[in-house]
């Protein structure tokens, strides 16, 4: 846990003491329109292990995926916690709310999820928006968004919201955000998109172990080609690492076993807003050279991929200038997958 949070090992006793002496904070974990991948990711956490989080650190009082009670007994718990711990419980939201047609596209206990979300948010100390559904809208919010699914930040405005995007977020990022709040009794520092800077502060590309291949102009050109077998850069296969702010290339997945690029598939940018409409996924990012290659999320991550694309292109342009011996921009060589950049919704 401390390693995950970037703390020295001397911090361990302090963290443990903080966990053991406080009463556990009640957490109401709601599920809206979602696929439960966030819960599944959460239970994969290796440090801390899920058992410790759920039974020793928080009081997971409502979570319809894991809780024993159902129906009325389940809803009674939510009512009770909202009343007994008003202003003192944490609301965790997985999924989002359909806003069309009076919210009929997601109901729980005969009530619209939209109503339940608003009601539960009212007395919450803060809201953790798990995953891209809650943070950004994700797949059901993709064009044409048939149910009017909207992320939490567009529904709730008067509460602190910590967005933890990703489809799903990395397990240790989820538990890392929670344990940070519990240990330091404060919200993590957030970027302009409401994401904790401790996990979403830098682009995957900037920390990618395949980055030297990008700089050297060595790319995978086709699946299972020589470059793929040597683990070269996946930029030409559509990698979104250059525009994606996440910890995949540092924390990695499933206790550090790998991450998408490490297993030969491009990053799809699943923690970025509108990533589903920033496709096709296997089309490489556009290249429009402009200055500002070391852009931060605050300067380029303005949710519009066209803008973040500019950052990549500029980055490439700069690279090209440094490597004046080459005549073409990396990636401009023709390949079967390459197509002119286009930005349209299907």
């Amino acid at each position: 846990m401390t390693a995950c949070m970037g703390l020295e090992s001397t911090m361990v006793p302090r963290v443990v003491a903080a966990m053991e002496t406080k009463p556990r904070i009640p957490v109401l974990w709601l599920h809206g329109l979602e696929c439960t991948c966030c819960s599944e990711s959460f239970i994969r956490s290796s440090h801390p292990i899920t058992q410790d989080v759920v039974f020793n650190m928080i009081s997971l009082d409502y979570d319809d995926t894991l809780q024993a009670a159902a129906g009325e007994q389940c809803e009674e718990i939510r009512d009770k916690i909202m009343k007994d711990y008003k202003g003192r419980y944490l609301l965790a939201v997985e999924g989002n709310a359909p806003t069309k047609d009076g919210g009929v596209y997601c109901t729980v206990g005969g009530r619209s999820f939209l109503d339940i979300l608003k009601e539960t948010a009212e007395g919450a100390k803060a809201i953790v928006a798990w995953g891209s559904c809650a943070a950004n809208g994700c797949v059901q919010n993709a064009h044409p968004n048939p149910t009017g699914a909207e992320p939490i930040k567009r529904i709730i405005s008067h509460k602190p919201i910590i967005n933890v995007p990703g489809c799903p977020p990395i397990a240790e990022v989820m538990t890392g955000v929670l344990t940070y709040m519990l240990t330091f009794d404060q919200l993590p520092e957030l970027d302009r998109n409401g994401r904790p800077k401790m996990f979403y502060g830098q682009r995957i590309h900037d920390k990618c172990y395949r980055r030297p291949f990008f700089d050297a102009g060595q790319y995978v050109e086709a699946w299972d080609d020589d470059g793929a077998r040597k683990g070269w850069c996946l930029y030409k296969m559509g990698c979104r690492g250059p525009t994606t702010y996440n910890s995949c290339s540092t924390v990695k997945w499933n206790n550090g076993v790998s991450f998408p690029i490490g297993s030969g598939h491009p990053c799809m940018g699943c923690s970025e807003e509108n990533f589903w409409d920033n496709g096709p996924f296997y089309q490489r990012l556009s290249s429009i050279p402009v200055p500002g290659i070391d852009s931060t999320p605050d300067t380029v991550g303005k949710t519009l991929v066209t803008l973040t694309g500019i950052g990549v292109a500029a980055h490439l342009g700069s690279y090209w200038i440094r490597r004046a011996t080459r005549k073409e921009l990396p990636g401009s060589a023709t390949s079967a997958t390459e197509k002119p950049a286009e930005k349209e919704k299907p």
Partner: peptide, 17 residues
């Protein structure tokens, strides 16, 4: 359960999804 699923991570880069 978080151990066996590492097989997905080896071939697919992550789990879930």
């Amino acid at each position: 359960q978080k151990e066996i699923i590492k097989i997905h991570t080896v071939f697919g880069g992550k789990n879930p999804h």
